[in-house]
Design a protein around this nucleic acid. Structure first.
Lengths: 188, 188
DNA sequence: GTGGAAGAGGAACTACGGTTCCGTATACTG
DNA sequence: CAGTATACGGAACCGTAGTTCCTCTTCCAC
């Protein structure tokens, strides 16, 4: 537990927020190719400052990706309250996809393009999967989806949908992909 | 029509073949990250020689990607002879996917990860799409797939499947993705 | 054979972008 | 209002990998 470091100095805290915000914007826009210097500049900060908080580019991206996974969990948690068991599942997928629509870097992350190690991501993933499992099981119990559906399938389909999202950035073609995939979930 | 250059000198021809073969192997194995020097070395050739044939890395990759698309067309053409209209479609997808299973670079290309310009690829794509359109229409006429299916859907689904293939390189998870997607094609 | 166009090889060049380092500035504690 | 730990900035460093260039070699047409 080295987590309990004394709070950041006020200016440092402010800069940290600006950095993550700028990083989010630029990575979303340009994917992993966004450059550290540009991010620092966008945040109105020197590179040294950036590197003080994130020892490496990979660390910075990992932080953002983890945020996204936590967001996914939050969305899933909300959808769990939807009464119709099928809609709970479908809506979860759709809303998660929508939430990353403009984020090129996260899309690449979903496909693990840069094969980073994503330190600590497993933690977030299992928290998310716990919720998703419940949603899936409920849909199965109601006979709304095929009996052999698993959480891994969920991730896989999101991966596929994300790929089309990246492939056709501007257009909304990914929604079509999601529709087809959702149709494939109906019990055979 | 600048296509009609005199034939290559015997040694040059031999080297060209070795180069494309080696490039195929290394790009398949390492994706776009494979290095020009390594490819030259693998082919038993100097870098200068490599650059004499392919003025740029992108050009080399494009040549290989075009080959793959031509292969796709060949597979589709074979599948057109399958009697069952649905099987023709499904088999085409499955066999194409199988054919690129070990080829990381092409998988990245399918998702347009490196946003190259892929000079001349449109030509190959439309040749392929012509065949696929016929296959799809036949399946629709037989009532085997949804009426609103289009060629773009085919490409999109292949893109999604390819993403899972890249994502889970070793394992065969992509087959599951393809199954789900194929199930989604059934008429509603 | 032989002349010369085409080809081979690979050291060196270059651009790019992540990361380091250190002198200077600033916030907090007592 | 010091004194110091923390933070800031950004020039410089460095590794990587694509590409160029120039000398030497080889094929082939006559």
């Amino acid at each position: 537990m080295t987590t309990e470091q004394r709070p950041l100095r006020a200016d440092a805290q402010r800069n940290l927020e600006r950095i993550t915000a700028s990083a989010q914007v630029l990575f979303a826009e340009r994917g992993t190719r966004a450059q550290m210097e540009d991010i620092a500049a966008h945040a109105g900060v020197g590179i040294g400052t950036l590197y003080r908080r994130f020892p490496t580019k990979e660390a910075l991206i990992t932080a953002l990706v983890r945020q996204r996974f936590q967001e996914f969990a939050a969305i899933a948690a909300e959808c769990e309250h939807i009464t119709d068991p099928y809609e709970a599942l479908a809506t979860s997928m759709r809303r998660q996809a929508e939430s990353i629509e403009g984020d090129a870097a996260f899309q690449l992350a979903m496909m693990n393009i840069d094969n980073f190690s994503w330190d600590g991501i497993d933690e977030d993933k299992s928290a998310l999967n716990a919720i998703l499992s419940r949603i899936i099981e409920r849909a199965q119990a109601a006979g709304a989806v095929r009996a052999d559906l698993g959480v891994e399938d969920y991730g896989m389909m999101m991966c596929g949908t994300t790929a089309t999202m990246y492939f056709m950035h501007g257009e909304h073609g990914w929604q079509r992909h999601l529709d087809l995939v959702l149709a494939g979930l109906k019990p055979s």
